[in-house]
Each structure stands twice: as C-alpha cells, then as structure tokens.
Design a protein around this nucleic acid. Structure first.
Lengths: 340, 340
DNA sequence: CTTGGCACTCCCTTGTCCAGAGTGCCAAGG
DNA sequence: CCTTGGCACTCTGGACAAGGGAGTGCCAAG
C-alpha cells in the first residue's frame, strides 16, 4: 500500500523534474498530482526514497531531484514505452519513404529522430560485416590506371583508383572482371575477401600481379574500418536548450559528438531492433558524460542488427517518449532498408 | 604621423582584445605595446577612433573594443595574411595526403582546418556543375531490375536502382551501355544530360522505353540538387571555448550548422582559390549571426572553383592566422583533387 | 499510518558600499 | 599643434548584510 504510493511519488518527482527542470517539493507535488494525501505524508515518503538513494536534495532546504538510480528505477519499473500516435507514425513513415538512397535514409532518420525527441540523435551507417557484394566494376581510366568500384547490398559504394604495374590489355581486364564477379557477387564481404585470395592463385601467371593489385584494393575497401566508424549526428542545436547546470556538460558533449569512435561506444553493441538499451548518467563509459543518458537500439532487416541508432541527452529527459521514438524510427529504418 | 599612430593603436586594440577577450584600456595598451607615448595621448587617439566608428566602449568607464567596422579596417588595411610555418604546411600536406577517397579528403580537410584555426570549419563537397562523367555502369540485378552507377570526375559516385518495364535482354543491355558510354564519357554533366536526351531519340523503337528509363535515372542523378548542398562541418566543440557574451550566439550558431542551405549561403559563391572572402559580423546575411564572422574561399584544380570551404567564428577572432589556414587548406585540397 | 503545526535551514534576491579601472577634459610644456 | 600629467567623474563588479520564501524534519494528536 504505502509502497505503491511511494513509487507513485517517485514517478511524480521524475515527471515534474523533467518538465520543470527544478527540484520538486512536497507541496507542489500534491497540488500537481492529486495524490490524495497531505504534503506531510509525501515528505515521509520522500525521506524513505532518499534513504534508498533514489532521490536527493541539492541542498538542505530544497526540493528533491531524482538520482541516476532513481531514473533507472523509473525506466525499469515505473513506465512503459508509450506508443507513438498514429499521426507521428505516419509522419515518420512518409518522411523516411521519401529517401532515395542510403545516405538519404540515414540523413532523414537522424533528422526525424532529433525532431521527435528534441535531443541529439545519432545514427550509425550499416556495418559492412553482414552485407554482401552486389557488384564490382573495373574501369580503365588510362592504360595504367584502374578505377575499382565496389557496391554492397546495403547500398554503400566504395571506390579506389589503383596504379597498375604495366599496361592492362582490354581483354585481360574483361576476363578478370568476369572471374571476379562470378567469384564474389552475392557473397558476404568476409567470405568475398577469402574468395578473392583463392581466385588470385588460380589466375594465370602472366596476369597474377595485376589481379593481386586489384584484389588488394578490393579487400582493403571491404575491410575498411572507417565504414564501421561512420556515424551521422543531428539535432545538436537541441543542446542549447539545456539551460541550467547542463551548460558545463555542453563542451564534453560537443567534443564527444566529434569523435565518432566515442559515439559508437556510446551506441554500444547493436542490439536487435526490439530491445532498447538505456544508459543513465554514470552508467556510461565516459566520466565527462556523467550527466547524460543514452537511449539506443539496433536496426536492420530481420533479427540481426546491421547498425545502431539512438539519442543522447541530459539524464533529465523524457524517457518514455524518447524510447518510443527511438524504437519507432529504428523499425522504420529497418523496413526501408529491407525494401531497398 | 599621428594618423599612423592611430592605426597602430587600432591594430593594438584588435590584437589585445582578440587575445584577452576583454575591453582594452589606454594604460594596458602602452604597457603591452611600447608605443612610445603616454596613456593620455592614446586616449586622444582612441577618442578619434571612436569618432570614426572603429571602436566602441561597452559602457562609460570601460576600455574599448573594436566594432565590426574596426575589424573590417584591420583586415583590409592593417594586416596581411601571415604565411604558415613550414611545419604547419607539412602537417597539412601529410595529413591530407593520407586520404584515399573523396569522402576522406573532405573529412580530413574539415578536421585539419578546425584544428588549425580552433574554429568551426565548413567544407562543401565539389559541385557537380563543372564535373565530368568518368564512367557509367549498368548492372542487371535481376531481369527487371537494373543498377545504374554514375561515376564523376570529382570522385563522386551516384547509384540508382531502376525497375524496368519488361525484361531486358543481355545484348540489348550491352548495346545500350556502349552507346551511353560513347555519348557521355568525358562530358560535363550539363552537356551529358542533353546528350542522353538525344541518344534516347536515336535508339530503335523497341528499346526506347528502356533507354528512356535509364536516361531518366541518370539525368536525375546528375541534376540531384542534394549534391550541391552537401557540406561537412567540424570543430563544433570549439564553440564551447567562447565564454563571454558569445554564449547567446551559440544557439543560433548550432542551428545554422544544422541547416546546410544556410551554411552554403555563408560560404557564399565559390571564389577562386586565391581570393579570400571575409564577412564580418552584421555584414553577413543572417541577423542571428551578427556576432560571427566567416572566412571562406573556393577550391578546385585550376582557376575555377568546384567548391568552397571556410571557417565560422566569433567576430573576435584571429583573422590573419585563420585566413592563412583557410587559404593553405584550400590550396592543398585543390592539388589533391587534381591528382586524383 | 496520516496529518497539522512549528521551528529550523538554506538559498536567492535586494540593497548598499567600496575599490579599481578607465575615461574626458584642462592647462602646461615642447 | 601635438603631447603630457593631473584630476574629477563614472561605471562595473565583488563583498557583505538583511529579509523573504520554499522546503524540510520532527513531534504529538487523530
């Protein structure tokens, strides 16, 4: 009984603090939430909650604010991901469906996510690890220079210009092209790299060095770690909305947003599109971002995630709404990538 | 005589204010700059400079700060672009030469520029307008689906998947491919679009619809305005360094950085790599950015610029150093694009 | 267990004051 | 005519004190 009310009080504190940005006191609480009890009673509950480390006072005679632990409890037990309205779903869908290209899908996702949550949004490009080779093209720019183009199932295109040791005859080129295509199209890039190695050995001695150069360029393009690092950020302007003490966090935040490696670590391992990861304040790996929370999830067709997306904001954020938005966007992105 | 000293005073004020961020008074000025005259004399000069609108006082008994007009004068008449040190040049060169792809070149440029100037750096992708078609590839994904790949001289790759009305025979495809290649390779994209139109009409009736679909996809890819809009931003964390009153500018600044259209307008028309554009405070097109300055220039092989790059920062910035950095980076980017 | 009352603590705002920095003006000197 | 030292004046910013307000903790009664 009293236990239930205590939790209701915690929930009320979190909600009020998130919306007002100010420590919330017992009196204001009963007024705004019709708890049916007096401020004194609420004070007792607050004392208990503070005892448990779920809320805290900035100073002796101030209202209470949730601790990281309090937010954690709120997220885990006191709230559910609230479903998005039909209008919102439609807005997301139509906006994302207007995209005609991988860059565009990612770009639009990050915008819509930032817009919905009013936070900073982060979207990772699909990792190469699980993608397959859609096509490879070899273009002779000059007798000694060759443009190698690699097109992946995710829609990503990589290209390299390679210098050949000697002249490359047109028919040799056509031959190599055909062999490479049959060997790797449809393969996962991890397998494709191996296949290219084998193929190189099978090629007649005369052409082997040429083939080796081409294969090397392709393998390099495939294993290019930069691709796994590519992320897009949006909604940075939302950082300016956080008045208060969050001002001090803005610098580390901006720095983090420039370091893609850091962002990837924040997004964490790509989980399946159905499970959300919520990291609150100090739970994260970076001391400087102790006042920020991250909500992330994986996306991708089927069960396996090919990339992550999410948002970053102050611990004092609207968790239910943001979680819903992250999930919804991830789902739409997944389905769109599936169609393409 | 006195005129010369007045300008020396203005220069000293600008330099001191830029480095200290505080209004500079007559006494501090003579101490730091050995002007050989007394503070009282400097005060007289200051009064004259204020009369001309080159400096101003925040309040009655404070030191002076340069006005926008003062900065303008400083930039136009009191300073030259100071050459970069050999070490800096080398650093830029080696860093940029490590790039192996267009995205990489752009990404590295923006980093090095932000690093050198300690400001927010902006780099525009090469516009398509002046680029030529390097290669086109048509890949049958299935009998009805075709992957169209467009490779431009700038290194940009565009791709589209098109649905064909009916099945497309392999030899028809080869034929179309050959015709398209001979028609457009080496052409500027503006001309290429026209050439594709003509070509469509010459194609035998049976294949004309197929050809029309492909041509449409190519033309769409060529005229894709999004490409002209693509810009990359870096060094946003430097915004946090501007304490003072620049805090209020940080929000509009962040908002502007999200709007690529705005950024392009800030960079302005791409000028040739040799001339720098400096826009100070209110001179810019946006009221909200009245406390920021922009230094920009074009880049590109030869005389014609294919894109712009530059920096944005508070009006109180190190103009000579920043101008040098912008110019140096633009030149290196130009030469690198030329090689590729 | 809940409630009203009450004393207590602490913050934040307001007002006042003072020191410091810088200016403008003036009259004297080169 | 320009430069200089002197001097009175203005304004800011920090220090300090006082008072109101919000909120708490505790206690005794219902």
């Amino acid at each position: 009984m009293q236990e239930d009310r205590r939790l209701a009080v915690l929930r009320a504190i979190v909600e009020d603090y998130v919306s007002t940005r100010e420590p919330v006191g017992s009196k204001a609480l009963v007024e705004r939430h019709r708890l049916g009890v007096s401020p004194a009673t609420v004070r007792n509950d607050m004392a208990a909650l503070e005892e448990e480390g779920l809320i805290a006072q900035p100073h002796t005679s101030a209202g209470r604010i949730p601790t990281d632990k309090g937010y954690r409890f709120f997220v885990d037990r006191l709230t559910q991901v609230k479903p998005m309205s039909a209008a919102e779903r439609r807005a997301i869908a139509t906006f994302l469906e207007g995209a005609h290209d991988l860059d565009d899908v990612i770009g639009r996702s990050v915008r819509v996510l930032a817009q919905l949550t009013q936070q900073v949004a982060i979207v990772q490009y699909p990792t190469l690890a699980r993608s397959t080779v859609r096509h490879i093209e070899l273009v002779a720019l000059s007798p000694e220079r060759l443009l190698v183009v690699l097109i992946l199932s995710t829609g990503r295109v990589e290209q390299r210009v390679v210098e050949m040791a000697g002249e490359l005859a047109a028919d040799t080129l056509a031959d190599l092209r055909a062999r490479i295509l049959t060997a790797v199209v449809g393969q996962r890039i991890t397998d494709a790299a191996a296949a290219l190695g084998q193929l190189t050995e099978q090629v007649a001695h005369d052409d082997r060095t040429q083939m080796a150069v081409i294969a090397a360029a392709l393998v390099e393009a495939m294993s290019n770690e930069r691709n796994d690092e590519r992320v897009v950020v949006g909604g940075t302007a939302n950082l300016a909305r956080f008045g208060d003490g969050f001002d001090q966090s803005i610098k580390p935040m901006l720095e983090a947003l420039e370091e893609h490696v850091v962002l990837l670590k924040l997004l964490g391992e790509a989980t399946s599109p159905d499970s959300l990861t919520v990291r609150i304040g100090h739970e994260g790996p970076y001391q400087e971002l102790a006042t920020t929370s991250v909500i992330a999830t994986g996306y991708g067709p089927g069960e396996e995630a090919v990339g992550s997306l999410g948002i970053v904001g102050p611990t004092r954020m609207d968790y239910p709404g943001s979680m819903a938005a992250v999930r919804a966007v991830a789902r739409y992105v997944s389905t769109i990538l599936d169609q393409a």
